[in-house]
Design a binder for these strands. Sequence first.
DNA 1: CCGCGGATCTTCT
DNA 2: GAAGATCCGCGGA
Length: 184
Amino acid sequence: MAQETGKAARFLLGKHLVWRTLGDWAALRITEVEGYLPEGDPAAHSRAGRTRRTAPLFGLPGTAYVYLVYGVHHCLNVAAEGEGVPGCVLIRAGVPIVPSAPSARELVGPGRVCRALGIDTRLSGADLVSGGDRVWLRDGAPPGEVETTRRIGISRGTQLRLRFVERGSASGAGRVILAGEEIG
DNA sequence: CCGCGGATCTTCT
DNA sequence: GAAGATCCGCGGA
């Protein structure tokens, strides 16, 4: 349900995304996400039903869904609802929380996040909750004030206010103005 | 099998 | 501010 995807998106704000690097690990705190609804969302990849690519969206909550956009960038999503219900949350930005993490700018933007984490479609279908893979989710301090706006970079379903940004983060107000979005 | 368009980012002016 | 990069999943034939 829409409400569940929205809740999941908010829930992920402040959580930590941890990944293995060469003999080490790094982590970011999630500061910007977008929800994509299982039904009635013309921007959702699941709108065409279950295909080989989108199958992870129909998996258990916490399942990774990675796809390639514009032939160049990868985007990381997290399945958000029950099995068979393809709601998901796009990870759009984070801030570094350990010295080994990439710089702040490299973690703003869904394509940059994936590049920084070394993520590609091979991670699609992985379980980010129980860990065991290269990338996983951990608990983190709850976000402060959360700003809700329309989603970025889509041509359909633009009226839905499913983008959530932790106010004050690098991906916050400045981007909203650049994107010409409404606030509040 | 072919054609299209995209949940982006970088570079150039 | 504008456009190019560069690929693949999907839908239609």
